[in-house]
Design a protein around this nucleic acid. Structure first.
Lengths: 202, 202
DNA sequence: CCTACCGATCGGTAGG
DNA sequence: CCTACCGATCGGTAGG
């Protein structure tokens, strides 16, 4: 037994990570309530009851998944907000980061976007609060861009909702075997959002 | 008993309509697999087994709901496509119509957007085909607008996905007690999509 | 539309 | 991590 004891790259994952990955895939494909703990266990090669050595409850598993995604979103935008970029560059960077995070793991992104509704009421509330914080940072950037007269509208809430809407649906159509990288898609969407589709006649 | 025999406006609905409405609400709030046929039955004041006088199966109920929504989307865009409007006016009208249909019944729109995944495999395929047809009409308009040089990009697929993304997320945040009507939201989003958020410096 | 029921499966646990 | 099990609930049906 030397230093490289891993049989394959796959088995470097801990069982916990395997369970998270399997749960993401199944929650995305079949929905939270359409996935049984036995489905998840089977995917990692154990029986249903044995899952409970690794998880507290099915609800707790969902909670860990959506929180891991939320952590990444919040980290990315806080770093951008704290940078010394101009406000329009910050907004562009935030759009690209959002697309990068959504496409990093489509299954996890889908669970984050859709299945969080099925958290227990207490946790659903906590999740909504975190997402509101994230969106508030976004809205703050939009507001500043309006005050600095880069953005035309005077309704930062609606403009922020427009941006986030355009981004949040990406998980339904992005394909990793397509012709664009996540960053390229992010840049393209940033162009569409800030410059619009219409040809500038100037 | 005169002409106006209805006890309340509510009881004018047929039992079938009551069931559809209750199912939409519950499928949206709890998800398809998180809603039992007994939940739906309780909402209309009968027992679980009695539902089956009105529906064939739970899957069939979901199918009827998503198809009713699909019918409305397709009707609206076909009427616009067949009109004699200019291509940019058609696109604007299609954006507004899409928002109007999504906000007409938020519960139904959510089931249409999200819960269709839980249809039986055969019906899921049929649903995807219908949605692809709808999106193809949208994409055709975008393509024509590019050929007529109204739209700058030369990638109609990506531009159409951008538009539909911006619209399809609206069901998560539109509130009927908010300050804008569906048509106003549609017009605003059309402005954002085609003109962009950035102030035109011309 | 209800009563009464079907077999299957659910999330989760005890004890090893 | 498995064996064996818990009470609860699932979608759906027969017979009235």
């Amino acid at each position: 037994m030397g230093v490289k004891t891993a049989k394959t790259v796959k088995t470097l994952e801990t069982r916990k990570e395997q369970i998270h990955q399997a749960a993401c895939r199944l929650f995305h494909q079949q929905g939270f309530h359409g996935t049984s703990v036995r489905d998840i266990a089977q995917e990692v090669g154990i029986l249903g009851g044995s899952l409970y050595t690794h998880i507290v409850s099915k609800d707790d598993l969902l909670w860990e998944i959506v929180n891991a995604v939320a952590d990444r979103f919040v980290d990315r935008i806080q770093e951008i907000a704290a940078s010394d970029l101009g406000v329009m560059q910050k907004l562009r960077a935030a759009v690209i980061a959002h697309v990068e995070e959504i496409t990093r793991d489509i299954d996890a992104a889908a669970v984050f976007a859709i299945e969080w509704r099925h958290l227990s009421p207490r946790r659903r509330k906590a999740f909504t609060a975190r997402r509101n914080d994230y969106e508030a940072i976004f809205r703050g950037m939009v507001d500043q861009a309006m005050r600095e007269r880069f953005i035309a509208s005077n309704d930062p809430s609606s403009a922020a909702l427009f941006i986030l809407s355009a981004l949040n649906w990406v998980f339904t159509w992005y394909r990793h075997d397509g012709r664009m990288t996540p960053t390229e898609v992010g840049r393209m969407l940033a162009d569409f959002i800030f410059d619009g589709l219409k040809r500038r006649t100037a």
